[in-house]
Amino acid sequence: MKNNYAYELARVIKVVRENPITNTLHLKLANQKRFQFLPGQFVQIGIPGFGECPIAISSAPQDAGKFICLTIRGVGELTKKLLTLKAGDIAFVHGPYGNGYPAVEKNLILIAGGCGFIPLVSVYENNKNRKDIKIQILMGCRNENLLLFRKKMQQAQMKHDLNLILEETLSKSFAAQKGLITDLLKKNKLLANATVFVCGPPAMYPAVVKKLLELKVAPADIYLTLEKRMHCGVGICQHCAVGTKYVCKDGPIFSYEYLRTLSEYQY
């Protein structure tokens, strides 16, 4: 029987500073060659003495045999500690956990708020070279300093319809508008026949989902990534329960078709 609470040792092979409070760790796991994951899945990363937390994998699934990336913003005790890891250090992880995003069979709209771009970048990497679908990205961020994955964003802006909106200031390096993510939904024509993956802070969801429904996107085509406190990662400890499901095991990605059946998600 597998011990779900035991760590695997991972080696930090590279650290990329995304912005003053966010790093991307490139990790090589002990079983890296056999490691597989779906975009949207997460691992638990910990430091003994500081606990552990779920972090979405931000690299492409095609690279899973070589490394995985975890993009971490230092907001709490543990995540701030994780920002001190440097190349050569050991990290403690277990996973992957969660359901991951469903396979993309239609056009793809990615709506990201701030850190919400982290799991979506894995989806983007996984689908960016497809000729059979169109991709549209709507991204909101507080200011330019907090942007993530700048190189990937530059490439995406050349290749796909990437729209950036900043809350506080305009960007010097990216074509951006000023305002909130919902303003982008008002100003841009959404791709027709599309699946919409939304990830961002919880406060963003009611406004975005309401707007999408107004624009006649079907609830079954809207997927939200939920953030909840988690301890076990395997659907036992109850912290992350949402309705009859668990964010760690059945999520973190839920279709709005399911969520709208619960009183707290009726927007």
């Binding site: 003994p48 500081f50 606990g51 552990e52 036992i236």
Partner: peptide, 14 residues
């Protein structure tokens, strides 16, 4: 049966 996982630092480890 809800539970937390908590780290307890000791002199010789965690």
């Amino acid at each position: 049966f809800c539970f937390n996982l908590e780290d307890d630092p000791q002199l010789n480890g965690v």
